[in-house]
Write a protein that binds this DNA or RNA. Structure first.
Lengths: 114, 114
DNA sequence: TTTGCTACTTTGTATTACATGGTACTGTTT
DNA sequence: AAACAGTACCATGTAATACAAAGTAGCAAA
């Protein structure tokens, strides 16, 4: 029962939401995504993001296209599909509801709203 | 990739926080906890909460005492230890930081603060 | 005694994040 | 040209968690 472990557990399930959200604004390839999420202090690593992107693609929420790079191997640029946009809208609601619930239960209901 | 599944994943890791938080205000037994969390629209079931309570107890964050019931079997009333309170304080910070990060990444940073 | 309710417990399963190691393409250095 | 370094993608195995499901046990009323 250490804090790092609990943090990791808390991150579970929100990555999908974050990735879809980031990609809905701009297409990006995996390394770019990792950089953006890391900048936002949401730890992610390769071993996490590649399987996740593949899963989202297999479920029809993402597509990708290959693009040559000016140095190094070609990149897979991912973008959100229409289905992905719908799912993202649902996730947004879900996230908002969950934050509200947690804040209510933990007694920080008013925070950020006064 | 269905919404219910993603919701379940989003809940991961926050239960510890919610339970510690609820118990820090009033001691309670498992069924009471389930009721409170369900009222707050945070689904929990027996199979989830009993092992979790035991884990928190084994890690020294919770203690319990038996109390006879006026009908039915005796109840285990759980309460938070000093160690648990410290951990709770950390979780509170962690949760707040994560919500801030997610909102920043998904572009809902201002929401609830206007 | 049987039935029903409450409360606690245990076992097995699905899902996820991550660590780790591996493949492949490009350009640079020797 | 050969070796190397850097970038990018991919695959496998592990740990942790939530949950379903089935089980145990106490108490009380019919």
């Amino acid at each position: 029962m250490n804090l790092e472990n609990t943090k990791a557990q808390m991150r579970k399930g929100i990555l999908e939401y974050c990735i879809l959200s980031v990609l809905s604004k701009n297409e990006a390839y995996a390394s770019e995504l990792i950089q953006k999420l890391t900048e936002a202090e949401l730890l992610v690593v390769e071993g996490t993001i590649y399987p996740l992107l593949t899963r989202l693609k297999n479920d029809g929420l993402l597509t990708y296209r290959w693009e040559e790079s000016t140095g190094g191997p070609p990149r897979k640029y991912y973008m959100v599909t229409t289905l992905g946009l719908n799912f993202l809208a649902e996730l947004k609601k879900t996230w908002a509801a969950m934050v509200a619930s947690v804040n209510r239960v933990t007694g920080s209901e008013g925070e950020g709203r006064r």
